[in-house]
């Protein structure tokens, strides 16, 4: 059907290199959807933020990419292996930081995408879902 999705891609976030791998995989997925330069850059930047967050605070994790053509949307699901976030609202605020970063990461990512959901998974770790029309 017209709404058929391309095969989702999975990236294991274990080392710093994997952040770059996540970025380029999402970038390619955006290219396949013929996303505009701006929409692509916004989404890929957000992916970079959540992938780094998963690696730095969650001790690594997994990022899954899915794309749909009708409407043209890109989505990622990222979960980490960390202890979770104590106060999610606080973590989303600009300027909040626990690891010496400037703390614009998660809040920034949320501003760059259409939909952003973050939660502590019952089985442990933080899960972020984001999607944007491209």
């Amino acid at each position: 059907m017209t709404g058929a999705a391309a095969a989702p891609r999975r990236i294991e976030l274990k080392a710093e290199r994997d952040i770059a791998a996540a970025r380029s995989a999402v970038s390619r997925a955006c290219d396949e959807l013929q996303a505009s330069a701006l929409r692509k850059v916004r989404f890929v930047t957000a992916v970079s933020e959540i992938a780094r967050n998963a690696l730095e605070h969650g001790g690594g994790g997994t990022l899954e990419i899915s794309a749909s053509r009708a409407p043209r949307r890109i989505a990622v699901l990222c979960h980490d292996n960390g202890p979770g976030i104590l106060d999610i609202d606080q973590a989303m605020r600009d300027g909040f930081t626990t690891a010496g970063s400037m703390g614009k990461g998660l809040g920034g990512a949320r501003r760059l995408v259409d939909r952003f959901e973050i939660r502590n998974r019952p089985e442990g770790g933080v899960e972020v879902r984001m999607s944007s029309q491209v």
Binding site: A37, L38, V41, T45, D94, K104, G108
Partner: peptide, 14 residues
């Protein structure tokens, strides 16, 4: 700096 990068950075407040 590319145009889309400049716009995104501004949106990030950087």
């Amino acid at each position: 700096m590319r145009p889309a990068v400049a716009m995104t950075l501004v949106e990030l407040g950087m």
